[in-house]
Design a protein around this nucleic acid. Structure first.
Length: 261
DNA sequence: ATGGCGGTGGAGCACCGA
């Protein structure tokens, strides 16, 4: 089973890229972030025509997450528990049944949090606390589980081309990194790092200042695996070439292959 | 780089992203 995650920065703007990507990579499950549209406006028919079941949790203009799956999704959860007043569409979860048992997948769009010292950063940290609490419960299910998405966290200095430039950024603040570690320390492993400790593995390059041409990137899109998913981990990869396509998203797909049929 | 680009809404330019 191949599971991918991709912040598309507007699904309407990226529909051609989505089709090209799924035809070449052929993921069984694809988690999307930053749809920037409401559920009714999601290009459902076009995506279904590519061979996927579609579950969305959309919002006007901002945020929005989806899970595309060749097999049907069940036990759908829209939104992260812990704050009924939170209107932002940043979390979607579902379960896929296979001949080898179930696999649970979440599509996560963690808040950016900039600038620090404002309510936006407080919201990011509070959202991470809610994610940690929910992930702790899911971990207890002892299922293969993949928490994937745009975490907006640079875990380590080697995950940025110029880490010093990010010192005061919400993506690299010690508080953000500590909460990401807290999540990992529940017993989740960062799939890309389980496969490689090399520097220079990035999933995002800014549109500005020729960041991609200079390879001035950061790694902020992650797939965290429960122990039962780690047992099945075959490989992980970052589809860097997608950033070189015409009119790309600023993020590229990241994916894992699991030994699950 | 205190915002160089890109998307949205809606028809200016503000807001957001990372």
């Amino acid at each position: 089973m191949r599971i991918a995650t991709w912040n598309v920065n507007s699904i309407k703007q990226r529909l051609d890229h989505l089709a090209t990507f799924v035809k070449s990579a052929d993921p069984d499950v694809l988690c999307l972030q930053e749809l920037k549209c409401m559920d009714e406006a999601f290009p459902r028919a076009e995506v279904e025509a590519l061979g996927y079941n579609v579950v969305t949790h959309g919002q006007k203009t901002y945020n929005g997450v989806a899970i595309l799956s060749k097999k049907p999704l069940e036990d759908i959860r829209r939104g992260l528990p812990g704050d009924d007043g939170d209107e932002q569409a940043r979390y979607l979860e579902g379960v896929i049944s296979t001949s080898a048992g179930v696999v649970r997948v979440a599509s996560i769009y963690l808040p950016n949090g900039n600038p620090i010292g404002t309510p936006k950063f407080d919201y990011k940290l509070a959202w991470m606390d809610r994610l940690i609490a929910h992930a702790r419960r899911l971990h207890g299910l002892e299922e293969p589980l993949v928490l994937c998405g745009d975490y907006n966290v640079i875990p380590e200095p080697k995950d940025a081309a110029n880490p010093e430039a990010w010192a005061n950024d919400a993506l690299f603040r010690p508080e953000s990194r500590a909460k990401f570690r807290e999540l990992e320390n529940l017993g989740f492993s960062d799939a890309v790092r389980a496969c490689s400790d090399q520097p220079g593995l990035y999933s995002f390059w800014d549109y500005q200042a020729g960041a991609f041409q200079r390879n001035n990137g950061i790694r902020i899109d992650h797939l965290l695996l429960s122990p039962q998913a780690q047992d099945k981990l075959k490989s992980a990869s970052i589809r860097k070439e997608v950033r070189g396509w015409d009119k790309p998203s600023d993020h590229v797909p990241v994916m894992v292959d699991l030994n699950i049929d």
